[in-house]
Amino acid sequence: MKETIFSFLRGGMLAPMQRKTFLKYTAMSGAVVTLGLQSCHKDHHTGSAGTTDVGSGDMGILNFAYALEQLEAAFYVKVNSSFYTNATDAEKAVLKDIMNHEVAHRDFFKKALGSSAIKDLTPDFSSIDFTSRTSVLGAAKVFEDTGVSAYNGAGQYLTNADYLTIAGKIVSVEARHAAAIRDLLNPGSADFAGDDVVAASTGLDFSRTPNSTTGGPSIVTTANLYLSTKISANQLP
């Protein structure tokens, strides 16, 4: 694993790309590379500070996804419980569909993870003004783009092909959401796949590992902004 990644870094993928760009879009670091050499037996647990760690290995990655899906589902349930001012029927239809998708993702992960699942997380959406279109759609954009980059970044650390396929089945739906929300915010523009998330030179979407701080706060940090029960991914890259 290590050897393969390093040989790509040396002579493979990096050759056609700027190294900086590559690092930005794959969020790779020395710490990341060693993950593949770890065994995957540590269980997630609630730490002394009340933080829920998602665990290690494939279960850790799936629990990390489960945490993000819990957050998204809770957000859209709240959005749908009382829509922002002057929401159109078309907007309500989009937001209702997305709510149901995220609820389905959340419930699927809970069932699939079974006894390995982290606990139900309690969200904290106090920073979002649910009466404001700008605030709600802005938060939705963050959640969707974050979800896309998280699945993209975690994929290569999965060892089970079926789990990789499941992640693939979900991430493309998150990407569809991201495009739809971005289109609501700025219709007819290039924002649905804007240069802020898709690198213009390579056409690659943003991908990040849970703890990578390349390009801004880590996904764990961003998620914790909206959680009163905090999570960590201390055994993941």
């Binding site: 879009y25 794959t26 896309v148 699945y151 993209n152 994929g155 290569q156 693939g168 991430v171 493309s172 739906v173 998150e174 990407a175 569809r176 495009a179 796949a193 898709v198 056409g203 690659l204 979407d205 943003f206 991908s207």
Partner: peptide, 8 residues
């Protein structure tokens, strides 16, 4: 994967 989500 990064291309896949762009296609989506």
């Amino acid at each position: 994967l990064d291309i896949h989500s762009v296609e989506a």
